[in-house]
Simulated scan of single mutants.
Amino acid sequence: MKLDDDIHNYYEHLVLERISELGIDKVKSPDYLADLCCLALNQVPPRYIRYEVDMAFYLPQSERKQMEMNVEFAISKALKFLDDSERNKKNSTEETA
């Protein structure tokens, strides 16, 4: 059995939108962006939808705002984790050289 191709997690849209707003997609590698998306999405609850229009018409504004705040926090936390990880990797490489 295969799920419909239209079914997706609405948070994916919000995460990509926030990454674009911050301009991170213009300065980081595709691998970094993939890691960032995974880390951020693992921090928010899934919200599966079939059609984007469903969210536009049926999602209360207060709930959408809460979802956006959840994404902002998740991305912030993921960025800190990735940046700390890169910094630690760089420092350990310099110490062994």
Rank of each mutant, 00 (worst) to 15 (best):
L3K: 07
L14C: 07
V71I: 10
I49M: 07
N88S: 14
Y11I: 00
T93N: 14
Y51C: 10
L3G: 04
C37T: 11
K26R: 13
Y10S: 01
R50S: 13
V71D: 00
M55T: 10
V15W: 01
S85L: 13
L82N: 07
K80N: 10
K89M: 13
L33W: 02
D6Q: 03
L39M: 07
A78Q: 00
D35V: 08
S20R: 13
D84G: 15
N91L: 15
D54A: 02
L79W: 02
D84F: 13
C37A: 11
M55S: 00
L16Q: 03
P46V: 03
A40K: 03
F81Q: 09
K89E: 15
E94F: 05
S20F: 07
C38V: 12
K89F: 08
K80M: 11
E63Y: 01
D5C: 11
N70P: 06
Q43H: 06
P60L: 11
Y48E: 12
M55V: 08
A78M: 05
N88C: 13
E68P: 00
A78L: 00
R64M: 08
E86N: 13
L16A: 08
I49Y: 02
D54V: 05
P45F: 06
E21H: 11
S92W: 06
P45K: 10
G23E: 02
E86R: 13
G23T: 08
C38F: 11
S29A: 09
K89A: 15
S62W: 01
L59E: 14
A56S: 06
D6L: 01
L33E: 05
L33H: 08
D83T: 14
L22N: 04
V15M: 05
L79K: 03
N42R: 14
R18I: 03
V44K: 10
K89P: 07
N42W: 05
L79G: 04
T93Q: 15
N88R: 10
